[in-house]
Amino acid sequence: MTGVALAICLLFDPDTDRAVRKLWSALEADGIRTLLTHTHRRHVPHLSYAVLRTFDEERVAAAVAALPGGPEVDLRFDSVCLFPRGRAALLAASTSALLNRQHAVADAVTRTGADLHWHYRPGRWVPHCSLTTGTGQELLATAARHAFDMLPLEARAVRAALIDSSTGRQLPLGSLP
């Protein structure tokens, strides 16, 4: 088992990726830390189905690979969410199809013995694309203003990967769970 976080992520089409990166850059220009400059600086725009605190990477990869592949995921981001500890995110609409897909991933990875972070447990999960990291409260309104300047964002997830959040290393998945 590993003590580093591993995420099962949906990754976006080039247009969506570019739009989120443009937003990250605008926030950074205003002194607001984003995933662009966070930790290893290899973060990519994404939506996480699950974040695991302890896991066996090979078992998790096999469990996710065994899930039936689905079509590309159309998402609509039209809200900004403020989480505790200065985290802001674009909030995606919680469609039943998206919730069902996330539930299947969460179930598959927990059956491997992995410890699923409680924010990603079905019924608690909030589908989002992270923007800020550790931002002081005085800057969150500025972050929200920047986000609302580009919303709504029609997005599409076109691929998936396991991502080691401590290094940014990606293990592409063969299908889209």
Rank of each mutant, 00 (worst) to 15 (best):
T54C: 02
D56G: 02
V60K: 00
H46S: 06
A63M: 01
A50Y: 01
E58Q: 00
A62D: 05
A61M: 09
T34Q: 01
L52Q: 07
S79M: 08
Y49V: 10
L52G: 08
T37L: 11
L52E: 06
A50S: 10
L35N: 06
V60T: 11
V51Y: 11
Y49I: 07
V80R: 11
V51S: 02
R87I: 15
A66P: 05
G69S: 14
T34M: 08
D74S: 06
L47V: 08
L82N: 11
L35G: 12
T34C: 01
R42Y: 05
S79A: 13
P68C: 07
H43S: 14
R33K: 13
A65R: 15
P84T: 03
G70K: 10
H38P: 03
G31F: 01
A62K: 01
A61E: 10
R85D: 14
Y49C: 05
L36T: 03
V44D: 03
P84L: 08
T34W: 04
L67M: 02
F77V: 05
H43N: 13
F55H: 15
A61T: 07
D74Q: 05
P68S: 12
L47H: 01
E72V: 05
E28A: 12
S79I: 04
I32V: 13
G69M: 04
E72A: 14
H40I: 02
P68H: 08
A50N: 05
G86Q: 14
F77R: 09
D74H: 14
P71C: 13
D74L: 03
E28M: 01
D30W: 01
